[in-house]
């Protein structure tokens, strides 16, 4: 039976060669993780990182532009806020499936969905950052003869940076979580090993992939906190109190 299936293609793993731990489907088999790190887990992890980085980068550009527009004009803020909140409410699996007839079973479908989910978080945080800049600070900057671009670059963005970075953190971490759903559409990312393991209820793969997904999110969050500290050294003075 195994021989026939193995001959027809490498679809079903040959359990004949697997360790007794894997055959018995014990809770956790380190040997399986060691053997499958390079062929299965590492590629999935790297694909996952790529999906997330692209989504957050595009989402950031769009949300930043939108926040610049909304900064002073409420006519733009309300509609964009409503739109991004509406998209945020759509269940991820449904959004992925609804995009498939339009953009196919492609990375584009996944990225469009992931970018859409970052918009609400990034837009609201960036806008909150801009709104937190005191009016008299802006007044003073203009009084010093700064043009509007200079005010933006040298006053508003630095002062808004803590809120902006907070938004990037939340968006990155939630996109890492959401990107596992991409496996419903394309065979990429950390959702893929979870899917395969669900077919056979293979404990080791379920556990190790879940740990990788949560671990990736926590590591990314930690790295962004370090980046935030490096970018905004002045905020640490207050942190001591």
């Amino acid at each position: 039976m195994t021989g026939i299936l193995a001959a027809s293609g490498p679809v079903i793993p040959d359990f004949g060669e697997a360790s007794t731990c894997v055959q018995d489907n014990r809770l956790f088999c380190p040997d399986w993780v060691r053997d499958n790190w390079a062929p299965v887990l590492q590629p999935a992890l790297l694909q996952h990182v790529k999906l997330v980085v692209i989504a957050v980068a595009i989402g950031f550009v769009l949300a930043f532009a939108a926040a610049l527009l909304a900064r002073r004009s409420t006519w733009f803020e309300r509609p964009f806020d409503l739109f991004s909140a509406l998209v945020y409410t759509i269940p991820s699996l449904a959004l992925f499936q609804l995009l498939v007839p339009v953009t196919g079973l492609t990375v584009t479908t996944v990225e469009v969905a992931l970018v859409s989910y970052t918009l609400l978080i990034l837009f609201r945080n960036i806008l909150t950052g801009f709104r937190s800049v005191p009016a008299d600070v802006l007044e003073a900057a203009r009084g010093m003869g700064m043009g509007s671009f200079q005010v933006l670059r040298r006053v508003e963005i630095p002062l808004a940076l803590p809120a902006i970075m907070a938004g990037v953190r939340v968006a990155t971490v939630s996109t890492i979580a959401l990107a596992t759903v991409a496996a419903f559409v394309i065979p990429e990312g950390l959702g893929r090993p979870i899917f395969l393991a669900l077919r056979q209820f293979f404990n080791t793969e379920l556990i190790v992939t879940a740990i990788l997904a949560v671990g990736l999110a926590l590591v990314a969050d930690g790295l962004l906190v370090l980046a935030q500290r490096a970018l905004t050294p002045w905020t640490r003075i207050k942190a001591g109190s």
Binding site: V170, V173, I176, A177, T180, V181, I194, T209, V214, D221
Partner: peptide
């Protein structure tokens, strides 16, 4: 925020 539904 870090918990993916699929992983849980």
């Amino acid at each position: 925020r870090a918990l993916p539904t699929l992983a849980v």
